[in-house]
């Protein structure tokens, strides 16, 4: 009997080219692998912001009560936004800086709307590691360049909210915004 079985085994080996037989096993296992990856995609994707967060309202802000030299803090997409009414002195200070001196070269005009150069609207999120810089409130430390100063790691921004000193790599970000009228601005 044993010999018969052995004979059988030999015959099987000869009959079936190993390649073809393995192919189907490999195909099945690869399919399982593809399936696992396909399942993983939605599991990972679900952690992205949901539709309600993506659709979060653009906000309208009344800026009529901000006197030159003052700033307010408001919230957009759960992040602070600084709205500053620059004084002529601050504007000229900002314009006096040569672009070559800047880490992230941008002019004040590029960071404001034409004809509204005194309105500096930026996110209040330090580009280093995300703290909220000081300088909005009355009497807060505005740092060596007279703009904003981040107390976490000492990044200093100038009057155009451009990075001048410290570890932050970029200027404070300017969000999308539009003036609805002289006194109302829509952010987002």
């Amino acid at each position: 009997m044993a010999t018969l079985e052995e004979k059988y085994a030999e015959q099987i080996e000869a009959d079936h080219s190993l390649r073809r037989r393995d192919f189907i096993n490999i195909a099945a296992v690869s399919f399982a692998g593809v399936g696992a990856v396909a399942v993983a995609l939605p599991l990972v994707n679900q952690m992205n912001p949901p539709a309600d967060v993506l659709a979060l309202a653009s906000i309208e802000v009344d800026i009529s009560k901000i006197a030159p030299g003052q700033a307010i803090k408001t919230s957009w997409r759960k992040q602070p936004v600084f709205i500053r009414n620059l004084t002529p002195k601050e504007i000229s200070e900002a314009n006096a800086v040569p672009l070559s001196e800047l880490r992230d070269p941008q002019t004040l005009a590029e960071r404001t709307k034409p004809g509204k150069e005194n309105w500096l609207i930026t996110l209040g999120v330090c580009t280093h590691l995300g703290c909220v810089p000081l300088g909005v409130g009355e009497g807060e430390n505005r740092g060596p360049f007279g703009g904003y100063f981040c107390p976490c790691h000492g990044s200093a921004y100038d009057t155009a909210a451009r990075i001048r000193q410290g570890p932050a790599p970029l200027n404070l970000m300017v969000p999308d915004y539009e003036f609805n009228s002289d006194t109302v601005v829509t952010i987002g």
Binding site: P42, L43, N45, Q46, M47, N48, P50, A51, D52, V53
Partner: peptide
């Protein structure tokens, strides 16, 4: 309604 693939989960 809003979470990505949330209904599937």
């Amino acid at each position: 309604r809003d979470v990505n693939a949330g209904w599937m989960m």
